[in-house]
Design a protein around this nucleic acid. Structure first.
Length: 875
DNA sequence: ATTTCTACTTAGAAAATGGCTG
DNA sequence: CAGCCATTTTCTAAGTAGAAAT
């Protein structure tokens, strides 16, 4: 790899903020001997220097106290690891604090191995071409907004629409000019060369921005909105930030907007009591609406996993009974087991049914209502441009549905009052009215934040926000930035890998742990693993892995088994680097025990700080993004059949996608119909085997001599039991009769049309008799084992058919495996969050696959910034 | 230095929709 | 043309990571 020589070293040293580390430039990694060669990261460390492993703790005594649950992080002291040659220095108490630095020999860090270290799942080599291909757009997240100096003031609307301040406002802000231009650009073959000039032009315009904005401001109010469609497009073009980026890297990106106005948030409607009585001790009881509401929350979940979960029940009931008490419900509700919510449940079922059967007009009315809300709350104006708002609905009250073993699952999530909600908008924007009789908690004007509204939720005391929609420019820009950082990592990764491979043997435990963690994060796409609190589900990521999550097996196999984000199980086994294996064994050594952290002196913050100095913008999560996108591109390239049909190409696409989903451990609950569907497929395979069996018999019937020569023909097919065959043959005959009858009906129909005389029932019976005959034959065949086969059957023909059957069985099997695996693999998450959409866009162009086969409407919207890449673009 | 808070991305479940078929 | 299943969208929980507070 050419890059290994050149790029590699860069990775390590390049990053340095010039200020911090002057001397770092030496080239030779191999010369590790001299101090100066040590990669920056290391050099820097001394400042922060954590104690050398041995001297810092003697905590061992305490370690025993840890509860089986999550103990507070503890430090352990490490004994010498005897078999590890170079770590002799480790355990010994006297490690010299300062000197250690020199030791880390990069040289012995087997550089060779590091190259070969491909991301686990994807054993791909880095694509050779560093091709940054012209796309000039790449880095500069230009923040157009900050440039526009004059904050356009939006004029107040006439009082009449004051409650919908935004509506109909600044409809066509700035501009025809840019619109026209951009449109043109679009139609052009979008080559980098053509783009460049345009960008320049545009940015010029930007500086004039204020004047055009002004126009907006003065624009007479529009009459009622004429309804979009056309409009939409224009507006979108205006928002096409990706077309006019210039590479101004130092643009201040802390400021997110210059002006921001919106209509606030939508509160869920007040509770409307239904009056259905739940039962307590078998008797219907009357509840105040407030109490009834909460009972209904639970009733609606009856028979779901949540409602069956004891923790959920307990938490729900605590809150519920407390509320009932407050409202002096009689009789007092003191026992969950005496509650019977089924009447409510049934009522809801009926309601659901009713809803389904609503007339078209009713349904349409509902839709219109939604649309109206969308129009009011679903949009805002950011720097004068119309943007979609994401979750403008305040979360309705309900029961908290924590995932996994969340201690608080089932707790009552209270209704949010306007008094709890803070809005963020321009100083000069119209402050949306709070609901009648209410006021907002606060109004702020923080242009460094992207949220429009925020409030605190009562169950976990966490903060909720209203943000712009995924398709907005703000989100798009940060998405773009995310992938650019991942691409930057691509260039640096070889060096970074070499660096941590070398650090695996560092003397300082902390550094070893850090390197080992980096290895896992890079190779296994683990998450960082921040620390979690007591009142959250017990899940872990890399840095929070505990003793019991990792087991080692002889030569170099590591088994990981733990619950990750959302309590999704991560269970994989893989071969790991020898030194990693040793390190983990060391970390697991006494006095470590169940409950102890594997990386007992590593915190995500420290890890990220280190990463940050290896490469600007690098954090643990970037590895996931990088490995996902890289793997995807690599797989896609390998799997796509150049001359395949669209369907085949799509299959390849989905396979590549799945590869990534597996890498990232993205799972979903198995659908409830899954088992049934699998059974069907299994049956299909059995049916094929049955045919095989029959064919073999036919061969033997035709050529009995073969019994000796080819005994395998006599062997029964696997998984084909007599009982099954019985049933199968019954079914076959049933189907056959059905078929005959259908044919008869059809023929009759035809005859009727042709005015011929219809076939009689008798004819039908005649035809069915043939089936009876066949049935008898089958029975006979089973007894004797002699299967004459179809007329004209020959051994050769049968053999050929056998082969075909084998193929079909194999194909069905793969389909089954495919389905099985896909059943619990969620492709969406990686597509939405990890795979650079430009890879997909380029692929679609290159292979002539329509974009919409790959991205849904929302995804196309979200990724619109990526849709115009050059077909040759590479991640 | 450590802990807590804040803001934003990532995540699977659930609800809604759509396309198909019996 | 309802019913069914797969796909898409919505919802909000659960992460990450940097900043602020202690």
């Amino acid at each position: 790899m050419s890059d290994s020589d050149e790029d590699m070293p860069l990775a390590i040293r390049k990053r340095q903020p010039a200020s911090t580390n002057p001397s770092t430039d030496d080239e030779n990694i191999e010369n590790s001997g001299s101090d100066s060669d040590i990669p920056l990261g290391k050099r820097k460390r001394p400042a922060v220097r954590r104690k050398v492993i041995d001297d810092d703790d003697d905590d061992d005594a305490s370690s025993g106290s840890d509860k089986a649950t999550r103990p507070a992080a503890k430090r352990r002291s490490y004994k010498e690891e005897s078999d590890d040659s170079d770590n002799s220095s480790y355990g010994s108490r006297s490690t010299p604090k300062k000197s250690n630095r020199s030791t880390s020999s990069l040289s012995d860090g087997k550089d060779d191995s590091s190259d070969s270290d491909v991301p686990l799942a994807a054993k791909k080599k880095p694509v050779p071409k560093p091709k940054t291909n012209g796309t000039p757009t790449t880095n500069g997240t230009t923040n157009g907004s900050s440039r526009v100096k004059a904050a356009p003031k939006y004029k107040e609307e006439s009082s009449s629409d004051s409650d919908t301040p935004l509506a109909a406002k600044s409809k066509k802000p700035a501009a025809k000019k840019p619109t026209a231009k951009v449109t043109k650009v679009k139609s052009e073959p979008d080559t980098s060369s053509s783009r460049k000039p345009k960008a320049a032009e545009k940015s010029k315009e930007k500086s004039k921005g204020s004047s055009s904005k002004k126009r907006v401001k003065d624009e007479p109010e529009e009459p009622a909105r004429p309804k979009k469609v056309k409009k939409e497009e224009e507006e979108e073009d205006l928002n096409a930030w990706w077309l006019n980026q210039d590479k101004n890297e130092d643009e201040d990106d802390t400021v997110k907007w210059t002006t921001l106005q919106h209509n606030g948030v939508y509160f869920p409607p007040e509770y409307v009591p239904h009056g259905v009585k739940m039962k307590y001790e078998g008797k219907p009881i009357t509840l105040e609406p407030e109490v009834e509401e909460v009972a209904s929350f639970f009733a609606a979940l009856l028979y779901t996993e949540h409602a069956e979960n004891p923790t959920f029940q307990e938490n729900f009931f605590r809150d519920f009974s407390k509320l009932a008490k407050r409202f002096k419900t009689v009789p007092a509700i003191t026992s969950f087991s005496k509650c019977d919510f089924t009447p409510m449940y049934e009522y809801f079922q009926v309601e659901k049914e009713k809803k389904k059967n609503m007339s078209k007009e009713q349904k349409q009315a509902l839709k219109d209502e939604k649309l109206a809300l969308d129009e009011l709350y679903g949009v805002c104006y950011l720097d004068g441009r119309k943007e979609k708002v994401g979750n403008y609905r305040i979360e309705p009250p309900g029961l908290f549905r924590g995932r996994g073993k969340h201690p608080k699952t089932g707790c009552l999530k209270l209704r949010v009052q306007p008094e709890q909600v803070t809005l963020n908008l321009s100083k000069d924007a119209v402050v949306p009215k709070a609901p009648a009789g209410h006021k907002w908690a606060k109004i702020v004007h923080d242009d460094t934040k992207t949220w429009l509204a925020t409030w605190k939720e009562n169950v976990n005391d966490s903060t909720k926000y209203v943000f712009l929609a995924a398709g907005s420019s703000l989100k798009g820009q940060s998405d773009f930035k995310k992938f650019e950082t991942a691409r930057a990592l691509k260039k640096e990764v070889a060096g970074i890998r070499r660096g941590y491979m070398a650090d695996l043997k560092d003397k300082k435990m902390f550094i070893r742990q850090r390197a080992t963690a980096m290895y896992l994060i890079d190779r296994l796409a683990l998450r960082a693993g921040n620390e979690k609190g007591e009142d959250e589900a017990d899940t872990v990521g890399c840095c929070s892995l505990r003793y019991e999550h990792v087991t080692l097996e002889k030569p170099n196999i590591m088994h990981l088994d733990f619950l990750g984000k959302d309590s999704i199980r991560f269970q994989k086994s893989m071969e790991v680097d020898e030194q990693v294996f040793k390190n983990i064994r060391l970390f697991k050594r006494e006095p470590a025990q169940e409950g102890d952290e594997l990386f007992d002196r590593l915190k995500t913050a420290e890890l990220n700080k280190h990463l940050q100095m290896l490469m600007k913008g690098l954090t643990a999560k970037v590895f996931r993004t990088y490995n996902a996108s890289f793997t995807f591109q690599d797989q896609l390239q390998k799997l796509t059949p150049k001359d395949g049909t669209t369907a085949e190409k799509l299959l390849a696409y989905n396979r590549a996608n799945r590869e990534v989903a597996v890498l990232c451990n993205h799972q979903r609950a198995v659908s409830k119909g899954h088992a049934v569907q699998m059974d069907k497929i299994t049956d299909k395979i059995r049916a094929l085997k049955y045919q095989k069996m029959k064919l073999k018999r036919t061969i033997l019937t035709l050529e009995p001599k073969l019994k000796k020569k080819r005994p395998e023909l006599l062997e029964p097919e696997s998984d084909l039991e007599d009982d099954w065959i019985d049933e199968h043959e019954v079914q076959l005959m049933l189907k056959e009769r059905e078929r005959v009858r259908l044919k008869w009906e059809k023929d009759n129909q035809k005859r009727k049309e042709n005015k011929e005389k219809p076939l009689s029932e008798k004819d039908l019976k005649e035809m069915l008799k043939e089936v009876d005959v066949r049935e008898k034959e089958l029975a006979k065949e089973r007894k004797s084992g002699n299967v004459p086969g179809a007329k004209g059957a020959t051994v050769e023909k049968c053999e050929a058919q056998l082969l075909k059957l084998d193929e079909r069985i194999a194909a069905t099997r793969t389909a089954m495996v495919d389905k099985e695996e896909n059943k619990q693999t969620a492709l969406g998450t990686s597509k939405i969050n990890y795979i650079d959409p430009r890879i997909s866009a380029a692929w679609c162009q290159k292979y002539d696959v329509p974009l919409e086969k790959i991205f849904t409407k929302t995804l196309r919207d979200k990724f619109k910034w990526a849709m115009t890449v050059d077909p040759a673009w590479e991640f």
